[in-house]
Nucleic acid binder design. Structure first.
Lengths: 257, 257
DNA sequence: CAGATGTAAACTGTCAACAGTTGATAGGCT
DNA sequence: AGCCTATCAACTGTTGACAGTTTACATCTG
């Protein structure tokens, strides 16, 4: 109906509009330059290749990527709306910087959203979807030993996104993505490493088991506890890293990309 | 009331950079064309001058407004991120269309966000800000008789925005604006008129008085009840209007702007 | 007459260039 | 030397134009 079909069903994998046709033709997708630029910028930011507060110059980017400034402008504006960049008129875009207070604030809202998500999921998700969620979690648990810290973070976020999808609310999804982007900004602020990460992972099992029992209240409580732990771990490491870097001369200026 | 005039001084902080200078010079604001276009489009949509589902053509708009297509592209993309437009690749932007189910979904999320907002406001807002909120509500109540339905809606939304500001969360604010935009879309779907609107207004007093008492739980309950009433009234009128329009031939096509 | 096919207009995606502004650097004055 | 001022380079805001795609209409064929 509407020009943009929300990807319904299960996971984040937007399996798209590929109707079942006999010979497996891929629906040839001509991604626009804007999308490609947005994708690359998004990755560069959440991976931490772009430092927080760093300026993202249109002209520099256009020269580096070999395209004109139009698509880059649009991509930057898109990321700004997603909360990854901030815009300063006539000066350009900068990677958003986060203080510890702001990270705290982000998590307050995140807790609200994800409590709602698990409650809805416990109420309305299909048995099949819940079972798939449990399978996915089990698989992730088995692989846990062989994951790098960055991969562990990705799996963690994927699980949360899965739960939000199960809530089945097209309104919630974009809000969650926005908040998650801020969380990733915060994560890119620290040096990822393991430590008490297994306690974080343990929280997932509590959430999933409550979901399987369709106990919304317990799932919400488990979710909140899990997020509080994640937040505290993040803030704690942020403080530790900040102390480490106090020795280095804090020369941060408008660096080129 | 423009959607984006940071109502200063109230709760939010962000008192802007206008230092106290003697002669009252306005900080001459060179609004970019993009912002101006976005503002006009925003208003045209929430006022209902643009029908839901209608196509917004770049070229037509650029001819009408006498500017080139660049700023219009950017403004459209911005509104798309805000949830007012949807984008169909190589076809353009369309005013987002809402079904009754989607309106229901929007209100589910809105309730979650605003419950959080009043709880935070009850906990952290300053006494002065709460007093100002009460004053504002009282003034609005006195004027109530002389308001048009559209003005009443604006006042209602302004009150909710005020409360969200009082929560003091920079993370919550943009999410709320996004949700509110969807609500306005829904409102533009019906013929505004009075009826049991006074019962809606009554809900505001419950919320404000609970806030003044700093009773977060009661404020949240009042907020939820208020929003549920608003939602039900909206959905009910939507159904009634739809029946009215069933007689007219439903000729809706890609109309020019 | 119904369906498929070809054609043309209109539109979006992208680009290169111009104009105005910002920030920094070099120079002059006290 | 220290502060202010003028100049300049780089960047953003905006424009008009070109190329490829989509959509609608007309034409052809069974």
């Amino acid at each position: 109906m509407s020009p943009e079909d929300g990807n319904k069903g299960f996971g984040t994998g937007r399996t798209a509009s590929q109707e079942t046709e006999e010979p497996g033709f891929q629906p040839v997708q001509a991604r626009s330059l804007t999308e490609e630029v947005a994708r690359q910028l998004h990755e560069a930011i959440v991976v931490g290749r772009l430092k927080l507060g760093q300026r993202i110059s249109e002209s520099v980017l256009s020269r580096e990527m070999g395209i004109s400034r139009g698509p880059i402008r649009e991509a930057e504006r898109q990321l700004a709306q997603q909360g990854l960049l901030v815009f300063s008129p006539r000066r350009g875009f900068f990677v958003r910087d986060l203080t510890a207070d702001q990270i705290n604030d982000v998590f307050r809202v995140r807790i609200v959203l994800e409590r709602f998500a698990v409650e809805e999921a416990a109420r309305t998700a299909s048995d099949a979807d819940l079972a798939r969620l449990a399978d996915w979690r089990a698989m992730m648990c088995r692989r846990q030993q062989s994951l790098s810290p960055a991969e562990f973070v990705e799996h963690d976020l994927a699980l949360h996104r899965l739960i939000v999808d199960l809530a089945g609310s097209d309104t919630l999804r974009p809000l969650f993505e926005n908040v998650i982007n801020q969380v990733r900004l915060g994560l890119s602020l620290i040096n990822l490493r393991f430590g008490r990460a297994d306690r974080i992972a343990q929280g997932h099992d509590d959430i999933v088991s409550a979901l399987l029992a369709r106990d919304g209240a317990r799932a919400a409580a488990a979710m909140e506890a899990h997020l509080v732990r994640s937040r505290d771990l993040l803030l704690e490491r942020l403080k530790a890293d900040a102390q480490d870097q106090d020795r280095l001369p804090p020369a941060r200026k408008d660096q080129e990309t």
